[in-house]
Computed example of a mutant assay.
Amino acid sequence: MPRTRKKGPELTRTRRPAQRLSGIDPHALSARLYELHNEASKRPDARDAAQEALSRWPGDAAFYNVLLWAQQHAEHLVGQEAQEASVLRVQLSQLLRERLDPVQLRAVEDARAAGATWERLAPALAVDSVTGAFNKARRLAVTVRGLAEDRRSPEAARALEARIAAEALERQRREEAEDARYPLVQAAARRVLAAYERSELCTQPEDYWITELAEVIDDRTNPLERANLALILRNATAEIYRNTRHTDREAAATDEAGQALEAAASLTHPPRTS
């Protein structure tokens, strides 16, 4: 009787999202590359070509030219220096690629807004079909605007588009709600500013938000600006209450000022829990 083989656990391959470099200064990478080549050129056994190459250094900020220069003169480095310089080139290349993605996406979006067809964009995107151009632009959008777990795939592109649409709808609803209560917020802001002008609030000369409130209260012309007034008023009242923790003063010096402050806080802050 033939023996049956036991099946082991099914192995599945998890598709991990692409990672992006962060917190790395490309100028520092470029400067370190120069430093490595400069040190190598000063050794007693350094070739004249290594010293001459430094005179053609493109500059720390010209990242693409730095990469071409470092690649051309890579043979001047040996051992650990050559290894470190190569890794720096890899990092700088990756950073340059990541910086170019949003630039290319914006260019595609500007081209579409200007009336360029996908037929015209296809060769510019190095693809040979309208579908290829459209899908490449969608994958680029996922790379630039997607979450860390998103993949460059049609499914991720559709999910991203749905998420952006939902966020836009939520933003519109929030702006409409803020716009509806704008008269109340503006009236509360005027009461706070009146108390501020009477020097009845705990403010400091360097306070930012109360000054910002005074400057913008009369120029709210669209729903987004009117919605932002509530945020500015919230920050201004928080700034006043925060000042009381660093001084021996009360938030408001009069009952009228205190009522204005409480009215503003009730409009712009979530209810306080005990």
Rank of each mutant, 00 (worst) to 15 (best):
A265K: 15
W57H: 01
A177G: 11
R152F: 01
L54V: 06
P223T: 07
L105Y: 02
P123S: 12
A177L: 07
L96G: 14
K7I: 03
A156F: 03
S153E: 11
F134W: 10
H37F: 03
G79I: 03
A253L: 12
V185D: 01
E212K: 13
E109D: 15
R97D: 14
S30N: 06
A162E: 14
H76M: 07
S93R: 15
A189E: 02
R190E: 05
R226I: 03
R181Y: 02
A116G: 02
Q71M: 07
D219H: 09
R99T: 04
R226M: 02
E200A: 11
T247V: 09
L184A: 15
D207C: 04
L11H: 11
P223K: 01
G258P: 02
V144G: 01
V66D: 00
W69Y: 14
E84G: 00
D150Y: 04
Y208W: 06
R89W: 04
A230D: 09
R13K: 11
P270D: 13
V185Y: 07
A61M: 07
A251S: 12
L77R: 15
V66S: 00
A62D: 12
T221L: 10
P44M: 03
E215P: 07
D179I: 05
L33V: 01
E149T: 02
D110R: 10
L147T: 07
L68W: 06
A116M: 13
A230P: 03
V108C: 07
P102W: 01
A257P: 01
A113P: 02
W118H: 05
V127R: 14
S22P: 00
Q71Y: 09
E155D: 11
W209E: 13
P17C: 04
V130I: 14
Q51P: 03
L233Q: 10
A214R: 12
P154E: 11
